Amino acid sequence: MSFATGAVVANLYYIQPLVDTLAREFHADAGRVGVLVTLLQLGYAVGLATLVPLGDLVERRWLLVTLLVGCSGGLAVMALAPTLAVIASVAVLVGLTSVAVQVIVPFAAQLAGEERRGRVVGTVMSGLLLGILLSRTVSGVLAGLVGWRWVFGIAAIVTLAVAVLLWLELPSAAPTARMSYPALLGSVLRLVRDERVLRYRMVYGACAFAAFSVFWSTAGFLLARPPYHWSETQIGLFALLGAAGAVAARFAGSLADRGHARWATLGFVAAVTISFGALLLGGHSVLALAVGVLLLDLGVQGLQITNQCVIYELRPDARARITTAYMTGYFLGGTAGSALGVAAYVLAGWTAVCVLGAVAGLVAAGVWLVERVVQARSASIAVAAAPS
């Protein structure tokens, strides 16, 4: 399951080191190519809202295979696309069907025992995070060696192979909900309304992924131009620094199992915010850029695991729908981050990108303080209402 999540989620990120290459290939400006990153994430957000809830309603193995076959077909079309418009139209389909990874994660949480659920989710998410990080390296290296079309062609083959693997290896899982599809979607909104902790975690996730996307949607432009002038291969290899995020996944899962999720949240939010100070200096210093990437990926991925460990304890019978609510907010944050990041870079350069990312981190820190105040008030009211 860990391998599958990594292999599939990579489909959303192969394009990021290629933005400058595609701009030159199709004689397009940075803004038009940056839209492709946004469309992939927008498609993913739509899939989270409409397809992931089916994990509570239908047999999960069948759902996974159906999604992955569709994703493989979309990648094949991207590999053969004659125009940027074709890539843009199919990007939505690839994003939509790549939500298979968010069917796998709650499936793993369901199969795990309660006492080790955090570590199991952390292990599966380690694969997902490595997929995100290695995707940029694989994409850059392949594009440099054999051309950008092979990146999407090989991704199509790997995704189809994952579909076969999951069909053969995963157990059959009976649905946990009995209701109509419209009622299922409506129940997602009720979960958001009823679960205050879920709402807070949605905001943390959205802010963190917005910051992450602000940087990675524009890093290709920075590194391909003065003072760096890096090739696709060099840009892809640079992304390996983000492997710190996979280390954070296991660490964050263990912290959640031991009951330290609250303070871990603050620490990871701080890492995201501080990272943009180093990234600002990274406009002219590769060392500062490396430090910023390490802090950013550590904070974003650690916060993601902490959030998921917390929300999966809320409603064990509705984990797919809780995943839908949380991850929809998460990727809408990422979509906004990508769009605003590209716009900031085009209008005002690298400094604007870093300010925007830092603001996203500061918003998350503010929400953490609000949550602490609300919890303290609730505890005081509960103590005052208790019989003496």
Rank of each mutant, 00 (worst) to 15 (best):
G282E: 08
G329W: 02
F251N: 05
A246I: 01
R321K: 12
F212L: 15
A219V: 15
W350D: 08
L18V: 00
A76Q: 04
A156E: 04
I322A: 08
T83H: 14
A320G: 08
H27D: 13
Y228H: 06
S285E: 07
I87A: 10
F212I: 03
G337L: 10
F3P: 00
L165I: 03
A28C: 05
V293Y: 02
L54D: 00
A30P: 00
S187A: 07
A161N: 14
T176G: 01
G34S: 12
E371Q: 14
R315E: 15
L240S: 15
L347H: 14
L303E: 03
A246R: 04
V214Q: 14
L111Q: 14
R61G: 05
A23G: 15
T123A: 10
L222P: 02
P171A: 12
V103D: 02
A239M: 13
L18D: 02
L222C: 06
W150M: 13
F212T: 01
T233G: 12
T265C: 08
L279Q: 11
L12R: 02
I381A: 14
G131A: 02
V162F: 11
T123Q: 12
M1L: 10
T38I: 04
L168E: 11
V77I: 15
F221Q: 05
G267L: 11
L67V: 02
V355M: 10
A161I: 10
L287Y: 13
L39W: 04
Q304I: 01
G140W: 03
V370L: 12
P82H: 09
A288S: 13
W230N: 09
L133I: 13
L185Y: 10
S135M: 08
L57T: 06
A256N: 12
S275M: 11
R262T: 01
R250N: 14
A379W: 05
G47S: 09
P316R: 07
G302D: 02
A174G: 09
H27V: 11
L198N: 03
E232I: 02
L142H: 04
G242R: 10
I381V: 14
A249C: 15
S231M: 12
A81W: 05
G253E: 02
T328E: 02
Q304S: 10
Q304Y: 07
R372K: 08
V103M: 04
S187P: 01
G55R: 03
L347Q: 15
I311G: 05
T97Y: 13
A288R: 12
V192Q: 10
T97E: 07
M78W: 04
L40Y: 06
V188Q: 07
R60G: 01
R250V: 15
V300N: 08
L142K: 05
W368K: 05
V69M: 12
V342G: 09
P82T: 03
L222R: 09
L289M: 15
L198M: 07
V203Q: 13
Y330L: 07
L134C: 09
V355H: 08
G153T: 03
V105G: 07
G153W: 06
Y326F: 15
V121Q: 03
L80H: 13
R116A: 00
G349C: 11
L255M: 15
R117F: 01
D29Q: 08
S254F: 04
V370R: 14
G282P: 06
E115M: 00
L237W: 13
D257T: 05
L303K: 04
A163I: 01
A271R: 04
Q234F: 07
G43S: 06
